[in-house]
Design a protein around this nucleic acid. Structure first.
Lengths: 201, 201, 201, 201
DNA sequence: AATGAATGAGATTTCATTCAT
DNA sequence: GATGAATGAAATCTCATTCAT
């Protein structure tokens, strides 16, 4: 139909993936536009045909990465019935993505650092919003589980916050030193200690 | 006796504190030497009387911050007897520092991002080492607790890792959005779900 | 075929010539990168597309200048048969370059001063080596002349050293004050007193 | 009588000698005021009690060095009767100073480079003038020798110029690489080829 | 008189961005 | 549409000089 448009989209995605890759490897502030161009196998100027600026590129890279995580999580979630299983599936979805792409996952820390300073100004790169959506997703499941008597009463918002925090904490420390503990073991320990006990029936 | 030496140390610490402050506010990569100088109320050249380079300053700021956290944690730890109480006291020590300095705590995320890229080369700014020391501290307490039958058998290293990860995760998300949950509540929830059940007697 | 490569080479040479020019006029240590850029009619950032650093530029300027002198000398030398004539031709070749570019020749003094401190570390800017090559060239001609009985026996190395030294001395003082003596007259006096008497047949 | 004044003079000379030393070792442009202070064993600020600025210090160091050379030369000159011997004595005087202080002699090259750019503006550091004085000294001796029929007729000014040029050339190349020839041998070769033949009776 | 901590003008260098080809 | 040469704003860092002690 419109091959040009498809081409453009593909190439844009290629650049984004190259960018995420280099961001993860070198850190966002250390990454020069030329590095991304080289990684993507294109000319330096070409990036600007697809992104207005480095900041724009960072924001889109972030979005692209989040979307990827989302897909994995949401996909898994659907398969479960009991809210606890839903939670576990979401967790497994997220962690699955992280586990299969250690190097790439490093970019999360840069996104956190970047996002912290951009919150106020920019909507497209809003850590708060994104994590609040996750929180809402989880607390919704928990809330429903409580009202359906499948989960022991807890503060759904707090529990959701702790789940997200713990997972990101585990990711952070696994990235800092993957040789010190096994990602899956840590997640299982967390699930056993914090998620499973919530189960009522 | 040697007023000059004391003066120099004090001024160096002043600069470090100004730096940490600005780093936390603006992010390390966005922070210019002149910003630190202005914050410290000195000329930009003066910084170089105390630190060889920006990188050196960052590393020392990191160290200085870690030492601060350490002091708070170790101080609290001593007061307890039962290993579970020791763990809780360490946790409370860390979280106490974080809670009383929200703005400053933001710098942690920059340190994580920075540290990730510097690990290989530099020893003074070694996230891996620092966290491994924490891990060893906690797992030592746990191990001892198990052998003294005060703690249920668990993998001490994994448990230590999860504790550290969870705390940092909570800190991370509290920094991203402190309005969404209460730091203390989250920590208490974590202690209740994960630490307390370890207690044997 | 490859117009870009040729362009780059030409532009690099342009920058080098601008640099030598400004170095000669102002002295190397007084020359700022911006001065060279202005002289070359480009932006200061552009220099760094062609040279990694100021030091690199200095070294290449030095080399470029030496090559120029070499060409002139070697060219002339070939034309002679008797070793004394060869020596005289080399001398005339060198002095010809110097004489036709008084202003530019000033750069030699800066190169001497620079080269003195860089010898130890760097090979590309090795005064010792360059002058030793000249010495070898001249002493070779003298040695051959002696063995072929065309030149009276002298220490070839010492004679070569004195020739080079005298020429550079004359250049030095002509640069310091060209109004005090005529370059050619001085060179002729030197040839008559020192070179000519070497001739056997 | 006035110990303070004497003290001041001595200390000033100490600083000058330290400066010449460091200038020779590192090159004038690479020498920081602090280097000189350290070498002289005094505080950085103290230099400014004796010299208005770095430039002033350079100029006085130059003068101090020249005076030293002068003394040695003039002293020797007096001892001779025949103008050729006078010339030789002056030459020996100069070269004697050079030979006994290889490291320090390097500073000459820096003085040449510096002097070249300062000629126009400043009188205290006037290479042209200084060397013209030398030229006048030598050409005066030669002129007198010619009129007294002790020296073959030559252009006194040109001969004086060539003598000075050759000596400085030999010094230059001996400094660049003292291992390649013997200073005295070179000077003797020069005297034999150029000075001695001037002798009439 | 002597000092060295403080300073900021000024130098080098980097790199996101532009734009002619 | 793609490119990379050119650019200059802006950053880091140096160091001669000042001045309070």
């Amino acid at each position: 139909m419109c091959p040009k448009i498809i081409d453009k989209k593909v190439k844009k995605q290629d650049i984004l993936e190259a960018a995420i890759n280099v961001f993860a490897q070198q850190g966002i502030p250390n990454t020069k536009m030329i590095d991304i161009a080289v990684k993507a196998g294109i000319g330096k100027g070409t990036i600007y045909e697809y992104f207005r600026s480095k900041e724009e590129l960072i924001k889109e890279a972030f979005r692209s990465y989040i979307v990827k995580l989302d897909k994995a999580a949401v996909h898994k979630m659907e398969e479960a019935d009991h809210p606890i299983d839903k939670l576990c599936n979401i967790i497994d979805g997220w962690m699955g993505v992280i586990e299969t792409s250690y190097e790439e996952s490093k970019v999360m820390i840069d996104f956190w650092a970047q996002g912290l300073r951009l919150n106020r100004v920019i909507e497209e790169f809003n850590l708060k919003e994104i994590y609040h959506n996750y929180r809402t997703l989880l607390s919704g499941i928990i809330k429903q589980g409580i009202s359906r008597e499948k989960i022991h009463p807890v503060d759904p918002n707090l529990m959701a916050s702790v789940i997200i925090a713990t997972l990101d904490g585990i990711v952070l420390h696994w990235i800092i030193g993957k040789e010190f503990f096994d990602l899956k073991d840590a997640v299982e320990l967390f699930k056993k200690s914090t998620i499973d006990p919530l189960r009522k029936i």
